[in-house]
Nucleic acid binder design. Structure first.
Lengths: 354, 354
DNA sequence: GTTCTCTATGATAGCGTTACCATTGCGCAT
DNA sequence: ATGCGCAATGGTAACGCTATCATAGAGAAC
């Protein structure tokens, strides 16, 4: 009898259940959850297993009651490159809830003034902000945040900001790797479409391209390099320009997937087979890369991992009350990956089989 | 001395402060807050005044801990049609935080069994689930959730589920409107690319197309209708099939944007101008619609509004402890919009200008 | 061997609220 | 008077977690 001896809803496991299961005290479980480093590796593993086994999830309410600190972190985005955003959101959301922080997503429209937005954040008691591109490159925004004493973490910026922590990949190195990949395939003339000059990653990607070429002993032919803006539309123009050349390249490396997709479209319009007649590759591995046909060979950025790292970093900075001591900011560099799909191939030899 | 006698953040007043100030017990204050009617009018007034005076606001964390009504709502998604997801997330996030509910985003991979996922939800104390497409059409999932007594809200399903609330647009009507739009432009032969037959919206969209044609006195020519699967790839094949016809249509209406984009690609490959030689329109208004060139005329679904509505609905159902009484589920229908962009035009007259 | 570090873990006491039962008066029927 | 029912309020124990201090062992230094 006495069917509900407790007020617990459902019969969700609590930290005590986990503790009993793992044969430790609740406190130790708490420490594992909050990834404190004092716990012995062996114990941690045992607890982790118990958590898995019971499918335990900590109660946010209890946490904030006991911990007494409710943290609000803002995600300020401006360019809804939606596929990017959704991955980004997934990662942030995940870490935010683990860190018992509220994620407040805020859009920064063109019309708004930076000042207003920052004021809005202050009013909303936002304790810190994470900035995905292209906002991470807006000096105005960075300055305004610093002035308002709001800690921020930049994600995927090409620069390494002096006063702010950042999480990114090595754009230069990734572009270098992709270019080397094309060289290894046998391409001798490789076109390049640059990204929007306002975003710092553009320059880094171009530098990687140049370095690979130079190292391989190729000259950088300016005619093979077109300026784009990261948009599909701009990619169309850039690709036309390159393919109009009297001696067009056998491969084009675009600074992002949108422009690569545009390049594929232009090639097709001209009756060129991809990758038979032209190899095309992109950068970012957004959903567009696998939407179109052929699917794009591209550089994958671990977007959700980056946002995860960014949230963790930010939470730590807020907790330790950074801003004051101004220890040097952390810069985390995550690994990229070159994803081979169907849009690249060795160039057709000029003189076909005898 | 003893500067921090308590762990309280800020120095927000608690229910005890109010009680002391009003000269009653905390319990009475609680009753006043929760507007229970047992409190004598005079006492209530005194307490109200104390609340005013101290500017007291109850702590949500403590409330949900004690009240046991911590709400966690799950967002179960399977097909990361990322642009859809990010809009969806924005809406859900917004409402979830307003409703003091935690949003738990969960991916449902192909490999997982429905049973496992549902178990996972139960263990994770998820009180309710919202299901974006295509999961909202999975009968297996719906049944499993019902069996586990987890309330759910389907979003953008074509069906109107018997036992579950749903939020959607009128797919049939939207497709009807688009088809009428094409007819009004002067198109006489209008192709159609159907969506994945596993998703209920596909059939509804097709029905709208048929109705418009029939009403206008056109016959439905089966050769102008191709089967697609909602993927770009399938759109490529479907478009080829339709354009291979000896007498191809002057317009093609694809059941979603991905397939419309594919149709544009096929047209371009064949040297057809869009919209000059062929009008193409899509459905959904995902980011792809504005990524490609020409930008697609399409049907806009108010995705974030739909997810907002879904969360509100779900929260209300959980609060009122539905599931038991099985009052008829609510079905909310939101408005769509026909967005005209650059991919449609009047057909070229067969005999060009004398 | 004794004391003095540490390091890893445990015990205890809240965090601010509500659920549940107990208590206090008070009017009214017996 | 005595007891009863009822209205209004209070006391106490959760809720699930973390902060803080205490403690047990394992070495290290003497």
């Amino acid at each position: 009898m006495d069917s509900r001896t407790s007020r617990r809803q459902r019969n969700a496991p609590t930290i005590n259940d986990v503790a009993r299961y793992a044969g430790v005290s609740p406190m130790t479980v708490s420490r594992v959850i909050n990834s404190e480093d004092v716990v012995k590796e062996e114990t941690r593993k045992r607890v982790q297993k118990a958590i898995e086994a019971l499918n335990y999830a900590p109660s946010p309410a209890a946490r904030s009651l006991a911990g007494g600190e409710e943290m609000r972190i803002g995600l300020l985005y401006s360019n809804p490159s939606s596929s990017y955003l959704s991955e980004f959101l997934m990662g942030s959301l995940d870490r935010a809830s683990r860190n018992n922080a509220h994620l407040v997503v805020e859009k920064f429209d063109e019309e708004m003034s930076v000042k207003n937005v920052v004021n809005h954040l202050v009013r909303g008691r936002i304790n810190g902000v994470i900035l995905p591109p292209p906002l991470c490159d807006s000096l105005e925004m960075l300055r305004a945040l610093a002035a308002a004493m709001i800690p921020a973490v930049a994600v995927a910026t090409g620069r390494t900001p002096k006063r702010m922590s950042a999480v990114s990949i090595d754009d230069e190195d990734a572009a270098y790797a992709m270019t080397r990949h094309l060289i290894a395939l046998g391409h001798l003339r490789i076109g390049f479409i640059r990204g929007n000059p306002d975003q710092s990653a553009s320059e880094r990607r171009y530098q990687g391209y140049v370095r690979a070429l130079t190292e391989a002993g190729f000259a950088v032919d300016d005619r093979l390099v077109a300026q784009g803006l990261f948009s599909y539309r701009s990619g169309l123009d850039a690709a036309e320009q390159i393919l109009d050349l009297p001696e067009p390249p056998s491969a084009i490396f675009a600074s992002n997937d949108d422009m690569a997709a545009a390049t594929v479209a232009v090639a097709h319009r001209r009756g060129l087979d991809v990758p038979g007649d032209l190899t095309v590759c992109g950068f970012d591995d957004t959903s567009l890369a696998t939407t179109i046909w052929p699917e794009l060979t591209t550089i994958r950025q671990p977007i959700s991992d980056m946002s995860r790292a960014a949230v963790d970093l930010l939470v730590r900075e807020i907790r330790t009350g950074k801003m004051e001591k101004d220890g040097p900011p952390s810069h985390i560099l995550l690994d990229y990956a070159l994803i081979r799909r169907q849009s690249d191939a060795a160039p057709r030899r000029r003189p076909r089989k005898v």
